[in-house]
């Protein structure tokens, strides 16, 4: 059993208390507060991070169960000086109001573009096979795990659509 979790390329020792969620571990023990706590019950997506390439809700995960895993948080996706394509697009499209859901939205969208590239179907896909046709309906379905209390959905969609289309070309 490894006794650390790798977060954005740095190893961090596991917490002693098994009750610590991956979310609280990231925020309180690692000190990366980009990942947000909205509901703490898997219902809002604000706590979305990418673990071993897959997006998950870090509030419904115990840090001790992730020993040896690799976690990417919003801080690992880009920096103000070198933002990712999605981060740039969110700024360009005003894909937020208060910004609280934004890290979760961007982590989720980052993983989502990979899922599309790997041909993983969604509930909105017409068929389970073949290349995925990127449509607003597809993006909405795939992003439905990320709620935005400010209702910035139209601009979030526009930002993701831009990057998804660029990637698809």
């Amino acid at each position: 059993m490894a006794d650390y979790i790798t977060v954005n390329d740095t190893k961090h020792p596991l917490p002693d208390d098994p009750r610590v969620s991956l979310l609280d571990f990231l925020r309180q023990e690692v000190g990366l507060t980009g990942t947000k706590k909205g509901c703490d019950h898997g219902q809002c997506g604000a706590c979305t991070v990418i673990v071993n390439g897959m997006r998950i809700n870090s509030c419904l995960a115990l840090a001790v169960m992730h020993d040896g895993d690799t976690v990417t948080t919003i801080e690992g996706i880009g920096t103000p000086g070198a933002p990712s394509a999605l981060q740039k697009a969110f700024v360009e499209h005003d894909g937020y109001q208060c910004g609280y859901c934004t890290p979760g939205q961007i982590c989720a969208a980052t993983a989502m573009l990979d899922e599309i590239a790997h041909g993983m179907p969604s509930d909105a896909s017409d068929t389970l096979e073949g290349e995925i046709q990127i449509s607003d309906e597809e993006i909405r379905e795939r992003m439905s795990g990320n709620l935005c209390r400010c209702g910035a959905y139209a601009n979030i969609l526009a930002a993701i659509r831009d990057v998804a289309k660029e990637k698809a070309v």
């Binding site: 997006r55 998950i56 989720a108 179907p121 969604s122 509930d123 389970l128 795990g145």
Partner: peptide, 28 residues
């Protein structure tokens, strides 16, 4: 839901899974 055999031979199962929860939750 993404296993080739399940997609091809048991689409009702792939569809049922994809209709549940969200990608973040289904990943766990």
């Amino acid at each position: 839901a993404n296993h080739p055999r399940i997609r091809a031979d048991y689409p009702v199962l792939a569809r049922a899974i994809l209709a549940g929860a969200t990608q973040q939750l289904r990943n766990k």
